[in-house]
Amino acid sequence: MNILTSLNTLLQGIPAGSRATLDAIFESIRAIFGGDRDTRKRVAFGVAVIALSAKMAKADGIVSPREVTAFQEILEIPPEELRNVFRLYDIAKQDIAGFDTYAMRLKGLCREEGETCELLTDVLDGLFHIAKADGLVHERELEFLAEVARIFGLSETEFTDVKNRHILGPSNPYAVLGLDPDAAPSETRARYLTLVRENHPDRLAARGVPDEFMFIATERMKAINNAYSQIAGKTAA
């Protein structure tokens, strides 16, 4: 089932104008998609990206046009589905529950599935893409992202790897690959191949990332490939 169709099904159960809450949304996911584990996981992922994006915008206090564009890049939204997606976005902004509640609920769903849930890193990746869209990850946004990572149970190293890929980017290819600047070419090559294997879009699809969110995987691979190309080019020179 297409995730946007699934979101439409989910929102149909919430009367227009009602003050829907986080608990109501996640209970609806459980009730509607309880017999379909794969769809349940994909819808939970989609809701998390949309809702946490809304909470991050509220925490920062400013939603720039570039951030809205970045949000729409992550989730390729057909015109007929815009209303549903932004309705969910507004529900999350208005919900009195804090972003930590959203993050903990998503982590709880992963635990119920008996998984380590690498999807949580993918959610964080998507949030970083939105945060940096205006050219700078602001202090409040970085604090928000660090706390989300902590709630998700990511290590400081895992958080730093995601942060470096988005913030340092072309300026520090070694940091993007998680390497010391004096790493040997053989170590660099081995690290690169490991990251390619771990972050290939097919692997993300296998762990439940919806097709509509494959932009995350594509951008991640671009950063990894660009970093390796820079290092290999310096070595060859």
Score class of each variant (00 low, 15 high):
12 Q>S: 11
126 G>D: 00
176 V>S: 03
167 I>G: 01
156 E>I: 09
126 G>R: 00
92 A>N: 03
46 G>W: 05
153 G>T: 05
164 N>D: 09
232 A>Q: 06
201 P>Q: 07
236 A>T: 12
189 R>M: 13
222 K>D: 06
210 P>C: 01
18 S>K: 05
211 D>F: 15
55 K>Q: 09
23 D>P: 02
29 I>T: 07
53 S>P: 14
217 A>Y: 07
148 V>A: 11
43 V>W: 08
35 G>N: 03
221 M>G: 03
30 R>C: 02
63 V>R: 05
191 R>P: 08
142 L>G: 00
113 E>L: 11
14 I>L: 05
8 N>P: 05
217 A>H: 07
55 K>T: 11
236 A>R: 13
152 F>H: 00
206 A>I: 09
165 R>V: 01
237 A>W: 14
197 R>Y: 15
83 R>H: 08
237 A>E: 13
180 D>E: 09
232 A>I: 11
90 D>L: 14
86 F>I: 08
176 V>K: 14
143 E>C: 03
158 E>A: 14
4 L>H: 03
53 S>K: 09
65 P>L: 04
85 V>I: 01
61 G>P: 04
28 S>R: 12
68 V>C: 01
183 A>N: 05
79 P>S: 04
160 T>K: 08
11 L>M: 07
7 L>K: 00
148 V>I: 13
108 G>Q: 11
